[in-house]
Structure formats: C-alpha cells, structure tokens
C-alpha cells in the first residue's frame, strides 16, 4: 500500500453547479506509467489537474475529498502549492514554451529556484535536454527562440523544462495529440525512459498509445472512474462492459 505515490480518496469536483468528477478513488504506483482514457469531456484533464492543484486557478471550482502525495493530503490548508507543483510537474496538450530562447526556457525553473550561477545552469540545461532526448537536435540552437522549433521539438523542450525542476511526478495531458507519428514515437520512447525515475500519469485518446506506453490504465466515463487495472488486463479482459465497448471502438 505504501509504495503508491498518489492516493486519491473520494474526490469530487464541480465547476459551479456542474459536477465534473464524482467520488473518484484510486492509487497510482510509483515509477510506473498510468494512463487515463475515456471519451471527450469525461473529466480526464480535470482529474489530472487536481493532482497538482492547477484547478485552483479557475474561479468557481469546488473540490471535495483527498489526494495524498507521499502520504500528505495536498488539499490540506497548510499545503504550499508552489512547492507541490515543483514536485508534480505538468506537460500540456498544446506545447507551450515561453517566447524565450531554448536555454532560457529550460533555465526558467532553476532560476526561479534561485540558481543563478552560469556553470550550474549550463549543466542543468544540458542534463535536462539530454534526458528529454533533444540535446542533439538543439545543442547548436540553444539561444534561438524556442518558438522556432517544430511542434514535436517544442513539446520535448517543455518536457525538458519540467525535468529541470526535478519533479517526482510528471502529469501529461495528451502530450502527443497534436504531433505527427514520428514525433509521437519519440515522445513515447521518452516516456519509457523517464519512468525509470519518475512517476508518470498520461491522458490519451489513443488506445494504442495507452497500450504501448502504460503499465496501468484507468477508464473514465462522465466523471466516474469506471475501472482501473494493469494495462494488459484492461485491454485484454476488461471488467466492465463500458470499458470493453470503449476500447473496441464501439463507442462515441
């Protein structure tokens, strides 16, 4: 039980009066890839964003229940959300590098943590870019604008940027949905590498992607967690009819 990195208990969320998540409970294991699947609008992104309290930014959101990360309830009054987000990084569906150079993008996190020594920043930038498997592609363009890179490269810059903060958990919201198959392949490879060190949670619409990359899969439907299990089990022998319908594509 204690090797679960994230434990969610009875989590409900409403946007105004609109219920988007209903009594979700789940445990997410450490240093594994967990995939969230489900039809559009079922609350995958919403749920993902509760894990680093990104929903705090939206007006009118009510959240009940508990989310434990390393056995600390992140919805406690005393939680330092800023530090929480350093520990729980996030990659967005649309790559969102800053309109700065590649170098400044990666150095953003270390800098806000007070690292200003050039040699250390260089080191972290190189290390993070290598970790994100994009160093070779950008090492000669470190001081060009990140926006001049291709979409796939931008997304890996965003991953490198997150890695530079040294998170323990990385949340990815459809990180490859806007990319071509080759870039998608690179991201999937990268996820495979990263799970040796990080707990990864990924939202995806692509069944094959979930099957290829994840160890565990959770199926959401209309704000409910329908079922969660080892990925092989979900894809070969799902426990619920709804899940089966969805993964076999018989479903909206």
């Amino acid at each position: 039980m204690n090797d679960f990195k994230v434990k969610v208990k009875d989590l409900s969320l409403r946007y105004g009066t609109n219920s988007a998540l209903k009594n979700i409970s789940m445990d997410i294991p450490e240093k594994k890839v967990t995939a969230f699947i489900g039809p559009s609008g079922c609350g995958k992104s919403t749920f993902l964003r509760t894990l680093n309290r990104m929903n705090d930014l939206i007006d009118n959101v009510t959240i009940d229940g508990e989310v434990y990360i390393d056995n600390i309830n992140i919805y406690d009054k005393n939680i330092d959300v800023v530090n929480l987000r350093k520990k729980v990084g996030m990659i967005f569906q649309k790559s969102n590098p800053f309109a700065k150079s590649v170098y400044d993008n990666i150095a953003f996190g270390p800098r806000i943590n007070g690292i200003s020594q050039k040699s250390r920043l260089d080191e972290i930038v190189e290390f993070s870019l290598k970790q994100a498997a994009i160093w070779d592609e950008v090492k000669d363009r470190l001081f060009n604008s990140a926006l001049s890179l291709s979409g796939g490269q931008q997304q890996r810059i965003c991953i490198a940027r997150t890695l530079a903060v040294n998170p323990e958990i990385i949340l990815m919201d459809e990180p490859a949905s806007a990319l071509d198959p080759i870039s998608t392949g690179k991201i999937e490879e990268l996820i495979h590498e990263l799970k040796k060190q990080y707990t990864i949670i990924i939202v995806t619409h692509n069944m094959q992607q979930a099957a290829r990359t994840s160890d565990f899969t959770a199926f959401f439907y209309m704000g409910d967690l329908v079922e969660m299990n080892r990925t092989e089990v979900i894809f070969s022998n799902p426990g619920k009819k709804q899940t089966e319908d969805y993964i076999s594509g018989r479903f909206g």
């Binding site: 406690d76 005393n78 939680i79 330092d80 800023v82 972290i124």
Partner: peptide, 28 residues
C-alpha cells in the same frame, strides 16, 4: 551518450535535488 548521461545525472542530481517539501506553507 549513456555514459555521458550517467555522469551528468549524478552531477545534476546532487546540484539541483534539494528536498522540496510542500506540507508547510512557506512565507515568500
């Protein structure tokens, strides 16, 4: 490349990995 990464990893880790704790609100 792999060796490189390992070298860097150890460096990167002991430079940037301060334990961030979030269970107490920090005054900034």
């Amino acid at each position: 490349m792999i060796k490189d990464l390992v070298r860097l990893k150890s460096k990167g880790q002991n430079t940037a990995k301060e334990i961030v704790s979030f269970n107490n609100k920090k005054f900034r």
